[in-house]
């Protein structure tokens, strides 16, 4: 009576295996923390599990992504992880080796954590997931003008936190070209 199994819906595990890595990166960018990212992803996948049959035929990745954005915002509202921004950002270095990559990740994580969750979400959706302003607005449930203003504020903040050289080198060394 007390212990019941949870039957896994068909296709769910394949989806997690195929799209999990990308979704985990989205979660990392939303939270700025590897453990919280895994926690966020698992939380949302557990929410999606019972509804899988209804959403599998549509766009499950978009559904999960939207759920992650909103769940992360709700976590932030509850302050349940007691996040405290760093007083100073870590030093950064040119991304020429593994250490530099770690520095770059830490620098980005620290900068991302300075952003309010809605601005983080806009950055993730617009510049990591490459959604249009309209799609970003639909995902967040807000107006396109809000997306634009949040983008502007987020970029202004990041501009002050991320050294220009980092951005330029990042763009030259491994960036995807977007139209």
């Amino acid at each position: 009576m007390l212990r019941r199994g949870a039957a896994q819906p068909p296709g769910f595990e394949e989806f997690v295996a195929a799209r999990g890595p990308r979704l985990l990166r989205v979660a990392w960018l939303l939270t700025g923390d590897a453990q919280l990212a895994e926690d966020l992803l698992q939380t949302v996948l557990a929410k999606v599990w019972p509804k899988w049959e209804q959403i599998a035929d549509g766009s499950p990745e978009a559904y999960v992504r939207t759920a992650m954005v909103h769940t992360n915002i709700s976590w932030w509202r509850r302050h349940w992880w007691g996040e405290v921004p760093h007083g100073e950002l870590p030093d950064t270095a040119a991304p020429s080796d593994a250490f530099a990559q770690v520095d770059l990740e830490q620098s980005l994580a620290a900068a991302i954590r300075r952003l309010p969750p809605r601005q983080r979400a806009v950055v993730v959706l617009r510049y990591f997931e490459d959604l249009s302003v309209e799609d970003t607005a639909a995902t967040l449930g807000c107006a396109t003008g809000t997306v634009k203003s949040q983008s502007a504020k987020a970029l202004r903040t990041l501009r002050g936190l991320l050294p220009a050289a980092e951005l330029v080198e990042g763009g030259e060394s491994g960036g995807r070209e977007r139209g």
Partner: peptide, 15 residues
């Protein structure tokens, strides 16, 4: 925008 996209793609870890 392009630079930010590139930075995110490069800097976001692949745990």
């Amino acid at each position: 925008e392009r630079a930010l996209r590139a930075l995110l793609e490069q800097a976001v870890p692949r745990p």
